[in-house]
Design a protein around this nucleic acid. Structure first.
Lengths: 223, 223
DNA sequence: TAATATATTTAGCCTAGCCTAAATATATTT
DNA sequence: AAATATATTTAGGCTAGGCTAAATATATTA
């Protein structure tokens, strides 16, 4: 009765993601993220809710959330993805901007044995190259207290912990700026109308960062 | 028009394999190897022949062979498979008896970039852990002059180059015997009725090997 | 050569996962 | 509250890749 196709795993992963920042994942949001028609989402979501045990909670027009079982399955795939990204960068010399696609294909086919071996080889890393936390082997995910760089105000200092983007050109741009996990950021000024921030990155700069970027950089503020 | 699904790749790989030892691959043989019904093979093979460019040559009731294009696609997948097996053993500590399944899943999803990186990391190996030759990046495969151990006669000496099996229990058994690529074998005696061979393996033994095993061990005779 | 056995193909059906177009709910304005 | 806009679902269809049962070729044996 339980199903674990690539497609199902992609749905679960995406629902997990969307329900991190909202109570429920809407049909349209899922369709946009998955690159399928909304009607296709409805169909799949109905199936995921009907399966035994159910993988999602679903009521017509009310959006969808993961069940315990669905979350477990989602975290398993997310663990695969993030371990793979880390492995590709650390062991095979990939750059952080081109690991996503490869990991997206591999994540669905690796065995638990493979997962264990790469985790071991990497020394059980806590975060992937973008700073995304890697679920533990027991599928627990540490709560992340980081907030978007865009929420900082002048004079605040912070450390970049996570870059919420998979877009290769953007990642290359951030790499050029030095705006990568571990970087120290000091906000010098903000421009209230266009929401630009003027920042020092590891003491270098100043650089002006638009909201489009600063909302995707997650930081921990230094006290 | 060209198709490259997992299923198609499995068909092409299997046709390649079967046409190594026979002029043509039969519907039944393909069905048995692929674990599908003969009728399914007919359907797929018709599609592979109808596609543009055609991937197989097919005439009703005459069996099937690969076209240039089909062979190229098959060798690409075989290269993936054998590089992966080698990588799993050398870099991730897999034992040779449990790499096949993992490689079978990964071979369909890795990129050319991934292929290149693992080939590089391994120093461009010529053979995988079972001794199977790895097609070059240009998809050429050195002709293999090895012959089955079962064809040797008493007093002949040979070196194991290749073990033609993916069966984990058999591979573990061979590992226990030391009958692995590189091993020196000396035939002491043959038993004409049951086709057993009495052999020395790296000077150890003697051991008695049945036809079931000796036909799957490929060797190069020492002159 | 006729009869039987085996291999292969055809025909028709099924499921997964997508699609579009039309119908219906929910949300937002006026 | 009615009207419009937006989101969601239903209905019906499509392709890939399987399946079984029946029909037809080819091979083998008497």
């Amino acid at each position: 009765m339980t199903i674990e196709t690539t497609s199902v795993q992609d749905y679960l992963k995406t629902i997990f993601d969307l329900t991190q920042s909202a109570a429920t994942a809407s049909t349209t949001a899922l369709a946009a993220r998955l690159g399928v028609a909304p009607a296709s989402v409805t169909g799949m979501v109905q199936k995921l809710a009907a399966v035994n045990p159910p993988l999602v909670n679903y009521r017509k027009h009310q959006g969808v959330t993961l069940t315990e079982e669905g979350q477990r399955a989602a975290l398993e795939v997310i663990r695969h993805h993030r371990l793979l990204e880390t492995y590709l960068v650390q062991m095979l010399g990939y750059s952080w901007d081109n690991v996503h696609e490869e990991a997206c294909r591999l994540e669905h086919v690796i065995s638990e044995d493979f997962e264990t071996r790469i985790a071991e080889a990497l020394g059980h890393p806590q975060r992937d190259p973008h700073g995304d936390p890697i679920p533990s082997a027991q599928l627990t995910l540490p709560t992340d207290h980081s907030l978007p760089l865009s929420t900082l105000r002048p004079a605040q200092q912070a450390v970049v912990v996570r870059v919420q983007s998979d877009d290769p050109p953007l990642l290359r741009h951030l790499d050029g700026l030095g705006l990568i996990p571990g970087a120290q950021v000091t906000v010098l000024a903000e421009s209230p109308f266009d929401q630009n921030l003027e920042v020092l990155i590891d003491g270098q700069g100043p650089k002006v960062i638009g909201l489009n970027i600063s909302s995707q950089i997650h930081v921990e503020v230094k006290d």
